[in-house]
Amino acid sequence: MGECRPLGFLIGLPFAFVAVIFSLVGALVWVLGTVLSCLCPCCICCVGAVKLSVSLLKLPIKILRWFTEKIPC
Rank of each mutant, 00 (worst) to 15 (best):
M1V: 13
G2K: 05
G2D: 11
G2W: 09
E3P: 00
E3Q: 02
P6K: 00
P6R: 00
F9V: 09
L10H: 11
L10M: 14
L10V: 13
I11L: 14
I11F: 11
G12V: 00
G12S: 05
G12W: 01
L13C: 09
P14A: 04
F15K: 01
A16Q: 04
F17N: 12
V18S: 03
A19W: 05
V20G: 12
I21D: 00
F22W: 11
F22E: 07
S23D: 10
S23N: 10
S23M: 14
S23A: 15
V25L: 15
V25Y: 10
G26Q: 07
A27K: 03
A27G: 08
A27R: 02
A27F: 09
A27E: 04
L28N: 06
L28K: 09
V29Q: 12
W30Q: 08
V31F: 15
L32A: 13
L32S: 11
G33Y: 07
G33S: 15
T34Y: 13
V35S: 05
S37E: 13
L39D: 11
C40K: 08
C40Q: 06
C42P: 02
I44L: 15
C45M: 08
G48K: 06
A49D: 02
A49F: 02
A49S: 02
V50A: 10
K51D: 07
K51S: 13
L52W: 08
S53W: 05
S53M: 02
S53Q: 02
S55P: 06
S55N: 13
L56V: 00
L56T: 00
L57W: 11
L57G: 14
K58G: 13
K58A: 15
L59W: 06
L59M: 14
L59R: 04
I61C: 07
I61L: 13
L64Q: 10
R65L: 15
R65C: 14
W66K: 11
E69T: 12
K70N: 13
I71C: 05
P72C: 08
C73W: 00
C73H: 00
